[in-house]
Design a protein around this nucleic acid. Structure first.
Lengths: 237, 237
DNA sequence: CTAAAATGTCATGAAAATGTAATATTTCAT
DNA sequence: ATGAAATATTACATTTTCATGACATTTTAG
């Protein structure tokens, strides 16, 4: 399964991390862990997990801090967060949800419950936002099937080109610098040569070109903006 | 680049300060240094650097102290901090870093990695505040898409002409000398022949002319003020 | 384990952009 | 009107930025 989703577990207790890790593994998710808010933040920015399980009671009360921060920054705002807490107090819930946290699980919890919540949150966020196919003229990208079609015919491209196209189609009519594209498509702090982005842009264009019929060439949707970056646009260059 | 960003290096070892300073210089940043937490704090408040590189191992363990303080005080809370740590996470110590630091780099690090992380953090903190489109009659400049349109049709121009027009449209009805225009569009500390501005004004006018329809010529918005400079104005010359 | 696919880097050539100097044109005081 | 000063325009050499094919390496699928 190429489409395995990754979940970051943030908790300072090793026992809890392990327990959750096993539960997730059983449920078919891959997981990574962090002990501190800082470590978590770096991991999130670098690796872009599909969901974050965040302990409310991190040393220094930094759990909420982190949540707030993640939701504030554009790069990470769309990554769903589930808070884990020992307390059941209403205050906490209100405060946590106020920050923009997607759900809330109180310790102790059963692995089954946790997985159910995760599924629900993932369905909700991937479901609503990302699951609907995006269509531009006859070009359609369907996240559910992870497939790109042009005039109902499949367009052949590599995973990176898919992510690139997905990013572009969800952010149309805006320029992005190569750096920004790297952040979004590869994850921040992945050291690539600047030109690498160009190469993948080229591959994506090529894929679109060879899938385009004799009419318009869909590669034209991906426009080079000299000195600034690239842009996905339906309007003439 | 119009505004060069300044980075404060806080480390008690001169060798490290120098090494980092050179790396930053090469990458196009200007830098300043501080040896102690106190000196650093004064510098930060006075000069407001765009980012702080902070050694965790400052004498007296005051590095974390400083970070915590900076993030607590409103005046400095939005200045990004990257921590430099000697070794990989020893739990209790690293927990001290959970104070809102933006990233950390473990020594020894490659200049390349450091610069990449700096870029990423700066992009995260400063980026994404995009301006709204500016419109004058049927001429529109949209910073988000980095595009100039006239009657909905794209106007073709080079990067410099774009910056020039952007400057003019954000500062209408005012005369600017060639010197001033150079500072704003090319950046200070760039020396050009005076006439170079004229040439680019010419190119911008030409771009606007060939995009203007048979009606009014939008090049007329850029007016020559003999003996003084140029002005962008919607009123007749 | 092997073959195919994907990935990232580099080298090269093409295209666009840039700054300067030379030349042409306009403006204004006289 | 006339000449000097200021500005506009053109041409061109140089620099910067991009596109693309080739290649070595890594990852994935079977």
């Amino acid at each position: 399964m190429t489409n395995e989703q990754t979940i970051l577990i943030v908790d300072d207790e090793a026992a809890i991390r392990d327990m959750i890790g096993i539960a997730l593994d059983t449920a078919g998710y891959s997981s990574m862990t962090a002990e501190t808010a800082l470590e978590a933040h770096v991991n999130i920015v670098d690796r872009r997990p599909d969901l974050v399980l965040l302990d409310w009671m991190l040393p220094g009360g930094s759990g909420i801090e982190l949540a707030r921060r993640l939701k504030r920054e554009e790069l990470t705002a769309d990554i769903p967060i589930i808070m884990l807490t020992a307390k059941t107090s209403e205050d906490n819930k209100v405060q946590g949800l106020d920050v923009g946290v997607d759900d809330y699980v109180t310790k102790p919890f059963s692995p089954r419950e946790l997985v159910a919540r995760i599924k629900a949150v993932l369905r909700r966020s991937t479901g609503n936002l990302r699951d609907k196919p995006i269509r531009v003229f006859d070009l359609e990208l369907d996240p559910a099937s992870h497939r790109v079609t042009l005039n109902e015919r499949a367009v052949d491209m590599g995973p990176t080109e898919y992510r690139l196209l997905n990013f572009f189609m969800t952010h149309p009519e805006k320029v992005f610098s190569r750096d920004h594209i790297q952040d979004q498509v590869w994850g921040a702090n992945v050291y690539l040569e600047e030109r690498t982005v160009d190469v993948h842009i080229g591959r994506l264009r090529k894929a679109l070109t060879s899938a385009s019929g004799p009419g318009i060439n869909y590669a034209g949707l991906i426009q080079t903006v000299r000195g600034a970056g690239y842009r996905f646009s339906t309007r003439a260059d």
